[in-house]
Amino acid sequence: MEDSDSDFLSWDNLIYIADFHEISNERHIALLGGEPTLHPNFVEFVSYLIARNFHVHVFTSGILTDEKLKEACKFLSEMSIEKLSFTCNLNHPDISTTTELDKIDKFLNTFGHLTTPGINLFALDFDISYILKAINIYNLKPHIRVGLAHPIPGEANSTISIEDLPRLAKQFLSFARDLSRLKITFGFDCGMPLCIFSDEQLGVLYKSSNGKLSFKCGPAIDIGPDMMLWSCFPLSNFHKKSIFDFNSLQEVKSFYDEIHTKIRSESGGIFENCNDCIHRDAGLCKGGCIAHLINNVNNEVPTTPKEVNL
């Protein structure tokens, strides 16, 4: 048993994280990356966590080397969905190479029964029909995780501008009929604002999502290989803390909840009318991704000499 590269999560840290979850009465651990399957001990770590009665959820691109897939198949393919599940973000075939498509095909052929497909929306002209086909071909879970690409404050990444979000809503609604027909549900990942949809659109979405619409944004809690914590991927550069500063996940969550509340007290949401929004007051919508708010503050013209960074 070896701990290879120090850039990867070590065995000792994994055990600590598992203990930390256990103490916090949390029996679910999600592994994400980068690409978690690239970890040299990926299969061992997943097997270990399952042996400790955790439910393990892996976020993956589905692009695994033949050797890694063979190993994963040997140890993990017989697991039940109560123990192991995957979310595989599927890019449109047109922007994937043949090699990538081939590897994803092999992955889904092996682990399709444990996999929920996902799509990360970063452009307006997106399509999901290829995901609907994949669900049918690979026997995937009939549910699509719909994520919205959020800005990473201080970095330039592909996102959809706030102004374009209603157009994104319209594009998504164009697939609603197909989703209903194929009995495929969907769920929004965090940071989707409610008001980009009309009441009529919300009615359609309500049915297609089995009534599980969510317009929330809150701390997800990510833990890095160096045992540093942060609120969520877009805020991976903000308020990092060591896991060793906390006694439980509840403490961590309270810490980041407080930070979210402080930021949102400055600016309620991504739209101007978020501050007066009754749905935000009622807790139905958080007002979009908090990373937008931080970006807005960062982009404000400095008002006092102190704030000018020379």
Binding site: M1, E2, D3, W11, D12, I15, A18, D19, Y48, A51, R52
Partner: peptide, 13 residues
């Protein structure tokens, strides 16, 4: 040194 980790693994299981 790996055995120290091995013991933690066994014990936690």
């Amino acid at each position: 040194k790996e055995n120290f980790t091995g013991i933690r693994i066994l014990s936690s299981l």
